[in-house]
C-alpha cells in the first residue's frame, strides 16, 4: 500500500500561484503521505519542499530556511527526534516551528518529541485540511508572525 520513492525532491507543480506563499518542509519517508500533503498544501497556496529522512531535512532546512517544518518521527538515516533536536540547537534553524506528525499514538512518544524541542505534536491519521489548519494557526501566532515579517 505504501509507495516509497528513492528520489526525493521538490514536488511537481510547484510553480505559479504558490511562489509567494509560506515555505513548508514536509519530512516523511512514505511517498504517499508526502504526495497527499504536497498536493493539498500547494493547492491551498503554500510552497512545499520534501525530505525523506532526518539528514536530508537538516540540509534543506539550513539551506532553504522554511517557515514551518512538518516532521515524521520514525525515519531512516536520522530519526525525527534527533533531527528536531539538531534543528532546535542550530541558531539558524532554531526559530522555525516544528510540527511533529507521527503514527506513534502513545503519550510517551509525544513527550519525547516535545523534549526534543518540537512546537506541536499531531497523531496520524491527519487529514490534509486538518494539517493545513494547524500550519496556519502556528504561523499566525505572534512569535511566528514576527519571524515571518522579517
Amino acid at each position: 500500500m505504501t509507495r516509497k520513492t528513492s528520489e526525493p525532491g521538490v514536488s511537481p507543480g510547484g510553480d505559479g500561484a504558490a511562489e509567494s506563499g509560506p515555505l513548508v518542509l514536509i519530512v516523511d519517508d512514505v511517498q504517499d503521505n508526502r504526495t497527499i500533503y504536497v498536493l493539498f498544501l500547494r493547492f491551498s497556496g503554500f510552497r512545499v519542499v520534501e525530505a525523506e529522512n532526518g539528514e536530508e531535512a537538516l540540509a534543506k532546512a539550513t539551506s532553504l530556511l522554511p517557515d514551518v517544518i512538518v516532521m515524521d518521527l520514525s525515519l531512516p538515516v536520522m530519526d525525527g527526534w534527533e533531527a528536531t533536536r539538531r534543528l532546535k540547537r542550530d541558531p539558524r534553524t532554531q526559530k522555525i516551528p516544528v510540527i511533529v506528525l507521527t503514527g506513534h499514538a502513545l503519550p510517551e512518544h509525544a513527550q519525547a518529541a516535545r523534549e526534543a524541542g518540537c512546537d506541536m505534536v499531531i497523531t496520524k491519521p491527519c487529514l490534509p485540511d486538518q494539517l493545513m489548519e494547524t500550519i496556519r494557526r502556528i504561523l499566525d501566532t505572534p512569535k511566528t508572525r514576527a519571524k515571518s515579517g522579517r
Binding site: M1, D32, I36, A105, T123, C126, P128
Partner: peptide
C-alpha cells in the same frame, strides 16, 4: 498501531483529497 496508522493516513488523506 503505528504501522496501521501510516497507511490509514494515506487512505484518509487521498479520500479527503
Amino acid at each position: 498501531s503505528h504501522d496501521v496508522r501510516t497507511p490509514l493516513n494515506a487512505i484518509l488523506g487521498y479520500t479527503s483529497l
